[in-house]
C-alpha cells in the first residue's frame, strides 16, 4: 500500500491545471477528494506520475439553486450536499443518496465531481445523475462543453471526458414529483449490491413521467428508459411494477463477484427497484 513516486501539483487556477494536463498527457490526473484515486495509486493499480490537486482552484464549491436548474460545483462534497437544507428541499434525492455513500469520514472528503468523473461502476452518483438527467460541464484547452450524464459513461472508468479535460460542474433540472434512492449493500462503506434511483411524477393518480437508473449492475450506470416508460400512463399498480422491473432487467448486465452470483443480483435489482418505485410513488 505504498504508491510509486509522483509529482504533486496544487495550482490556483484552472488555466494552470489545463496546462499541466496538456504538458503531461496520460501521465497526469486531476484529483478532487482523492478517495478513489489514492487507494488505486497505493495499490499501484493506477500509475500517476503527475498528480494535480484541485483543492485550491476556486469556483467549484458552490451550490446554486435557480428557478429551473440546480448547479453544483465539482468539488462540493457529499457532506456538503447532506448539510445543504435548501438543496434538500428542492432535490431531496441528492441527500438521500449521499447518506448512503461510504461513511461520514469519507463523505467529508469525497466530492460530487470525483464520484461522477472517475467512471467507477460502483459509484452512486453517476446513476443518480442519469436519473435526474443532469448535464456535466467539462473544460479543456478548447473551452467548455456540456455532456449529458446519460451519454457520459462508455465502460468501466471510460467516459466521454477527454484526457485533457476537467469536470467542473453539474447542472440538474429541478426534479419533479416523488423520489427514492434505494441501495442494498453488505455493510457501511460498501458499494451497492444493487441500487436504484427513481424520480416519478403523479398527476391525478396516473404516472406522467418516470426516470429510473441502476447502479453497480453493469460496467456503467444504467439509465433504463424502458423501465421508466413502463410506468408512464399507469397507476403504478402491480402490473406496471412488473413491467418496469422486466424492462430494467433487460438493460442491466451484472457480473458475479463477492456480493453474489448473477441470478442473485438480478433478483435483488428487481426487489430494490420495486421498493424504490413504491417509495417514490408514495411521495409523488
Amino acid at each position: 500500500m505504498i504508491p510509486a513516486a509522483f509529482e504533486y501539483y496544487r495550482p490556483k487556477d484552472m488555466d494552470k491545471v489545463l496546462s499541466i494536463l496538456e504538458e503531461h498527457g496520460d501521465d497526469a490526473r486531476v484529483m478532487a477528494g482523492g478517495h478513489s484515486l489514492i487507494p488505486m495509486m497505493k495499490l499501484r493499480m493506477a500509475d500517476v506520475p503527475h498528480l494535480i490537486d484541485l483543492q485550491d482552484v476556486g469556483g467549484m464549491s458552490e451550490i446554486e439553486i435557480g428557478a429551473d436548474t440546480i448547479k453544483i460545483g465539482a468539488l462540493v462534497t457529499q457532506s456538503d450536499i447532506i448539510d445543504h437544507a435548501a438543496l434538500a428541499d428542492v432535490a431531496p434525492i441528492l441527500r438521500e443518496a449521499s447518506l448512503q455513500i461510504a461513511d461520514p469520514q469519507v463523505r467529508y472528503m469525497g466530492t460530487l465531481g470525483g464520484n461522477i468523473a472517475n467512471g467507477d461502476p460502483g459509484n452512486d452518483m453517476p446513476g443518480l445523475m442519469q436519473c435526474l438527467d443532469a448535464t456535466f460541464t467539462v473544460v479543456g484547452q478548447d473551452g467548455e462543453r456540456a455532456i449529458p450524464a446519460r451519454d457520459f459513461y462508455e465502460a468501466a472508468y471510460v467516459t466521454a471526458r477527454e484526457d485533457g479535460e476537467v469536470l467542473t460542474a453539474v447542472t440538474i433540472p429541478r426534479p419533479k414529483g416523488g423520489h427514492a434512492y434505494e441501495k442494498q449493500k453488505r455493510k457501511i462503506g460498501d458499494y451497492a449490491t444493487a441500487a436504484a434511483s427513481v424520480q416519478i411524477v403523479n398527476d391525478g393518480g396516473k404516472c406522467v413521467s418516470a426516470a429510473i437508473a441502476m447502479t453497480n449492475l453493469s460496467d456503467t450506470p444504467v439509465f433504463s428508459k424502458t423501465a421508466g416508460d413502463a410506468l408512464v400512463g399507469t397507476s403504478v399498480d402491480d402490473a406496471a411494477l412488473k413491467a418496469a422491473v422486466a424492462a430494467m432487467l433487460g438493460d442491466i448486465d451484472p457480473t458475479e463477484d463477492n456480493r453474489g452470483p448473477v441470478a442473485f443480483k438480478n433478483h435483488v435489482a428487481g426487489v430494490i427497484l420495486r421498493r424504490a418505485i413504491a417509495r417514490a410513488w408514495s411521495r409523488a
Binding site: 442494498q184 453488505r186 449490491t193 453474489g260 452470483p261 442473485f264 433478483h267 435483488v268
Partner: peptide, 16 residues
C-alpha cells in the same frame, strides 16, 4: 450467512 447465501437458501426452498 451473507446476503446472497441466505437468498440462495430461500431460493432453493422455493420461497421466491
Amino acid at each position: 450467512h451473507d446476503h446472497w447465501r441466505i437468498w440462495r437458501t430461500a431460493n432453493e426452498l422455493g420461497l421466491h
